[in-house]
Design a protein around this nucleic acid. Structure first.
Length: 836
RNA sequence: GCCGGGAUGGCGGAAUUGGUAGACGCAAGGGACUUAAAAUCCCUCGCUCUGUAUGGAGCAUGCCGGUUCAAGUCCGGCUCCCGGCACCA
């Protein structure tokens, strides 16, 4: 009789749900464990990437449950977002209805996979009982100055018709639709994530349970650099230019300055000069160029403004340029240029024939050369170095200072400190820190998101909606035409009264970035029905931080950084009292087929539904976990799935044998040698599976060892006592149950157990039983494997060596040779080194 | 360019602190059962040479070198692939 997975899987899914076996216990003496998977956007179709994520999580959840943890394992939906709105435009369906339908089909698919969530805690971010708290938190942030509005150049996606946060621009393109973004000057809402830049950076240290690459990515994204801000006076003008440098040791080597094209001072400088037109044309050219060729490496280009600045340390006059390689967004938008010690400046100087002044020499050259050459000044040209050394590139390493007045002769590293001190002392600049991290732009000009709870009043300005008026609900009198934000055309939504002065006012029509929704959903799971606060402090204090978070690497900066920021900001609002949301993070690899990520356009998509239909959830789960370790990419193979299907069926058939075995093997003794061997293997398998799951989540090797156990069991079947056989099958089924829960429940029942296997305790192993009397030792001669000997573990080293030497296979290699030495690694290997 | 990660049979992947390379699975080949197919079961399976006493010898973990009795694992130098960042002053 073959295994009817369809009936069995449905049966147990119903049973689990009916018995509420996955319900979270609120009060428990057990140790808590919060296991979380990144919740999905409800697109309506579960793809293999989702399935992999959840199967990894679910297997862990079942493992931890059986190991006696009080588990929180929830699921929800990141339900706001563009696809729903686009569907509304296309199919003339309400986005909410569309989303709800998608959630239902997705949930059904998840249930079919046998995932053991506590569905009572489901969080749907698009529901007013959730987004109300988004708004509530926004107003708290607003009160604290963490939410603010400003006019700024934004990343605008022309296809999605909305702005994007910096983190959502990947390679100059929209993260969602891959359209090249444009720069648009707009007044928008921001969250002040930069206020937490330093803490976000420092606390990365503490995230020891995170993959190193994610920590590095976050560190780079925050991009801290410490340096010096210096004011350079402009010649014949009362003005000064502020620049930022991380290399104060090169201050004496400055031979020109360069402004970003967008720098406001540039136009002021050239106004009413003969350079005006030339410079303006240049600026226009590169502003356009910048937008088009954002990614390609451009040749350095610039133009002289006709103006000079004064190096405040040397008094030297230095020309001011406008250049295409200076960023307005970073530092001050103007830089001092030291061609001798910066490769970009070097290239620029060579191109425009600007002097190169060397102020740092490599240690080796500084030592060998005769008394310090101080003649390298503005008259020196790049291609005519004073001491004959060819200058083919900038020297950016540390070295010995020269041409730097009182700092000559010291190490440049030391000079950084001394010159910084000197600059501060002279009050021409000060030490500063810059970050690459920008504030988080949360405004979106779309309908299907959390309305930003702000009212604009002529008299009172931007006023937050008071708590008792929250939530600001999304209106229904809207049309989805695809043009502009529907909210801005909804009269019922826009028109309102000022909460302060009650005069006719206008409501903010921007909605929030959906990453706001996902920045605290994991806290809501701890207290999903709470209606006084986003969540109670008591409950989050019990469950948070998340003990194990599982998700894709694509959120390494986006979601994971925002969530960290939120946690810190909510902590400062006294809503919670921990610093980091996720203790351990597992980033699973992609699911690929024929070498590519599964996608519709590649036509290599394998449907989850179809897999379950064809082979059942247990087989699908087993394959997903068996094919590769979780952090690596998973190469989909239909044949591989079939192999797992075979294994499931083999286990099923073996379990059917149990009754027959009782009659057949009546005379087999439980303490016979074979039973002892199998008992040793049983213990070994428990140990292997337990450690593999727990330590590195290496499900693939855990499953392999279960298969080995099966193979041995089936081959010894006829000589095992009924008791041994039964104990072994029970162990095997328990060990297999986190991976393939349905069939294991069914077999468990078949073995006359009345409880669910879920409530069964995870087995333990006995070290004593792992010991063997006899062991195989590999024997090498001069490091080459020449034979194997079976020895009693009680033998001494000398006895083993003697035994090896008398072995027929070994003999011929050591015959007539002088034994130089022997190396014996206890119970493993013996190496006999011979000479001659 | 910089920063990560990786490279092991035909394939996915295993290999404690350096200690029998290739576990487990897939594919392939051979056989059994069957009218046949599917399913199932049994055997073989890194490469080369040698050979039939069903054994033997050599070579093998991207490449080149080193350390060691012993290297997939450690050290030095490369090559290629994947990911992230990218004029960040």
């Amino acid at each position: 009789m073959s295994y009817d997975f369809k009936t069995v899987e449905k049966k147990w899914q119903k049973y689990w749900e009916y018995k509420k076996l996955f319900k979270t216990e609120e009060k428990s003496d057990k140790k808590k464990f919060y296991l979380l998977e990144m919740f999905p956007y409800p697109s309506g179709k579960l793809h293999m990437g989702h399935a992999r994520n959840y199967v990894i999580g679910d297997t862990l959840s079942r493992f931890f449950r059986m190991n006696g943890y009080n588990l929180l394992y929830p699921m929800g939906y990141d339900a706001f977002g563009l696809p729903a709105e686009n569907a509304a435009i296309k199919n003339k369906i309400n986005p909410e209805k569309w989303t709800d339908e998608c959630i239902n089909t997705m949930m059904e698919q998840q249930k079919k996979l046998g995932l053991s969530y506590d569905w009572d805690r489901m969080v749907v971010t698009a529901k007013p009982d959730y987004y109300k708290w988004n708004q509530w938190i926004f107003t708290k942030f607003f009160d604290k100055g963490l939410a603010y509005k400003k006019k700024a150049p934004t990343n605008f996606c022309p296809k999605d018709q909305t702005v994007l946060a910096n983190e959502q621009v990947i390679d100059g393109k929209c993260w969602r639709c891959q359209t090249t973004v444009e720069v648009k000057e707009l007044e928008q809402w921001f969250y002040k994530i930069t206020e937490y830049a330093e803490e976000l950076l420092n606390d990365i240290e503490k995230l020891t349970g995170w993959p190193e690459r994610v920590r590095i990515m976050q560190r780079n994204w925050i991009g801290k650099s410490e340096g010096l801000s210096v004011n350079f006076p402009i010649k014949d003008s009362g003005k000064k230019i502020e620049i930022f440098t991380t290399r104060p040791d090169t201050l004496y080597g400055v031979t020109f300055m360069t402004f970003a094209a967008e720098h406001p001072l540039v136009l002021e400088l050239v106004n009413n000069t003969e350079k005006e037109k030339e410079v303006k044309d240049f600026i226009n050219k590169i502003v356009i160029q910048k937008r088009i060729t954002r990614l390609e490496e451009k040749e350095k280009e610039g133009i002289f403004t006709g103006k000079y600045a004064i190096n405040p340390l040397t008094g030297d006059e230095i020309p001011i340029y406008v250049g295409n390689f200076v960023l307005m967004e970073y530092g001050t938008g103007a830089i001092m240029c030291v061609p001798a010690h910066d490769q970009r400046d070097f290239e620029f100087a060579k191109k425009y024939n600007i002097p190169i002044k060397e102020v740092i020499q490599p240690q080796s050259i500084a030592q060998s050369s005769t008394p310090m050459n101080t003649g390298r000044d503005l008259s020196q040209r790049a291609d005519t170095p004073s001491d004959g050394r060819p200058l083919s590139s900038a020297y950016v390493e540390e070295g010995i200072m020269l041409n730097s007045q009182q700092f000559n002769g010291i190490n440049s590293k030391e000079a950084i400190i001394k010159i910084s001190d000197y600059v501060e002392e002279k009050k021409i600049g000060k030490r500063v820190v810059h970050y690459k991290l920008r504030d988080w732009l949360i405004s979106r000009q779309r309908y299907w998101g959390t309305p930003i709870p702000i009212i604009y009043c002529e008299k009172c300005g931007a006023v937050p909606v008071p708590e008792n008026e929250l939530p600001v609900l999304l209106p229904n009198d809207v049309e989805f035409t695809g043009e502009g934000n529907p909210l801005s055309k909804s009269a019922s939504f826009i028109n309102c009264k000022c909460p302060k002065c009650n005069s006719e006012s206008r409501r903010e029509t921007d909605t929030m970035d959906t990453f706001v929704d996902s920045s605290w959903y994991f806290e809501r799971y701890c207290d999903p029905k709470q209606d006084k606060f986003p969540f109670s402090k008591e409950k989050v204090s019990y469950w948070m931080p998340v003990d194990q978070y599982i998700g894709g690497i694509e959120h390494a900066v986006l979601h994971l950084l925002y969530s960290r920021f939120y946690t810190k900001a909510l902590r400062d609002l006294k809503l919670l009292d921990y610093n980091e949301p996720f203790n351990n993070l597992l980033c699973q690899g992609m699911v690929v087929k024929d070498g590519f990520k599964m996608s519709k356009s590649k036509g290599n998509v394998v449907s989850v539904d179809e897999m379950i239909d064809l082979y059942g959830a247990d087989t699908a789960r087993l394959f997903i976990l068996f094919a590769s370790p979780p952090e690596r990419d998973l190469e989909w193979s239909d044949e591989g799935v079939h192999g797992c299907f075979r294994f499931i069926n083999k286990v099923w058939n073996m379990a059917q044998n149990i009754k027959q075995c009782k009659i057949q093997n009546a005379e087999c003794k439980i303490d016979g040698e074979i039973n002892k061997d199998i008992e040793r293997l049983r213990n070994f398998t428990i140990k292997k599976v337990t450690i593999d799951i727990q330590k590195e989540f290496h499900f693939n090797t855990a499953i392999a060892s279960i298969m080995e156990f099966y193979n041995e069991l089936i081959s010894k079947q006829s000589s095992l006592s009924h008791e041994s056989f039964k104990i072994c099958i029970e162990t095997l089924v328990i060990l297999l149950s986190p991976f393939a829960p349905h069939i294991c429940e069914e077999i468990w029942q078949l073995l006359d157990h009345s409880n669910s296997i879920i409530s069964e305790k995870w087995p333990t192993w006995c070290e004593e039983k792992l010991k063997q009397n006899e062991i195989t030792i590999a024997v090498q001669v001069n490091g080459k494997l020449r034979g194997q000997i079976d020895v009693n573990i009680g033998l001494s080293e000398q006895e083993i060596i003697g035994f090896a030497k008398s072995n027929e296979k070994i003999k011929k290699y050591i015959l007539d040779k002088k034994i130089i030495k022997t190396i014996y690694v206890p119970l493993k290997i013996l190496n006999i080194v011979v000479g001659g």
